[in-house]
Computed example of a mutant assay.
Amino acid sequence: MPVRPPVFRPRWHKGEDQRRREFDAKRGSARQRGYDTAWEKVRARHLALHPTCCVPGCRTPTDRLNVDHIESVREAPERRLDPTNLRTLCQSHHSARTSRDHSWNRKI
Rank of each mutant, 00 (worst) to 15 (best):
P56A: 05
M1R: 06
D63L: 06
R43F: 04
R27W: 06
R27V: 06
R106I: 10
N85H: 02
A30C: 00
K107M: 09
H13P: 04
R80H: 14
A48W: 01
Q18A: 15
L81P: 12
H93G: 00
K14F: 06
N85Y: 02
R4K: 04
L65S: 03
G15D: 15
T88F: 05
H13W: 15
D36T: 01
T98A: 14
R20T: 13
F8L: 14
W12T: 12
R27K: 12
W12Y: 13
L49E: 03
Q18H: 09
R59S: 11
T88Q: 06
P5T: 01
P10C: 10
G34V: 04
R21Y: 02
C53W: 04
H13D: 11
W12F: 09
H13N: 02
R9G: 00
H46I: 08
I70G: 07
P77F: 02
I108E: 14
R74G: 14
T37D: 06
S95E: 13
H102R: 11
S72T: 10
D82P: 13
T88I: 07
H13C: 07
A25E: 11
S29L: 07
P10S: 07
L89N: 01
V3Q: 15
D36N: 15
A25H: 03
V3P: 00
C53G: 02
P5I: 01
L89T: 00
L49R: 02
G15A: 12
L89Q: 07
R11M: 03
H102K: 12
G57Q: 04
W12Q: 12
R11F: 14
T37V: 05
G34C: 00
T98P: 12
S29K: 11
V7W: 08
P61A: 06
T84M: 01
R9V: 11
G57F: 07
V67I: 03
V42N: 01
R79A: 09
P2G: 09
E75P: 08
F23T: 10
H46P: 01
R27F: 02
T98S: 15
L86W: 11
S99Q: 11
S72C: 01
H93P: 09
L47T: 02
L86K: 07
R97H: 12
L89G: 04
K14M: 14
V73C: 08
R59F: 03
Q91T: 10
R59A: 11
P56V: 06
R20W: 08
R64P: 02
D24M: 15
G15L: 11
L47W: 01
S95Q: 14
R11G: 12
R97V: 09
R100M: 08
T84G: 04
H93S: 00
C53V: 07
H69W: 06
E16W: 11
H102T: 14
P83F: 00
C54M: 12
V7I: 13
N66D: 15
P2T: 08
I70D: 05
L65D: 02
N66H: 15
S29W: 04
A44W: 03
P5M: 00
C58D: 05
R97L: 13
K41S: 03
H50D: 03
D17T: 09
I108M: 10
R4N: 09
R64C: 09
H69G: 10
R21H: 11
R79C: 05
E71L: 12
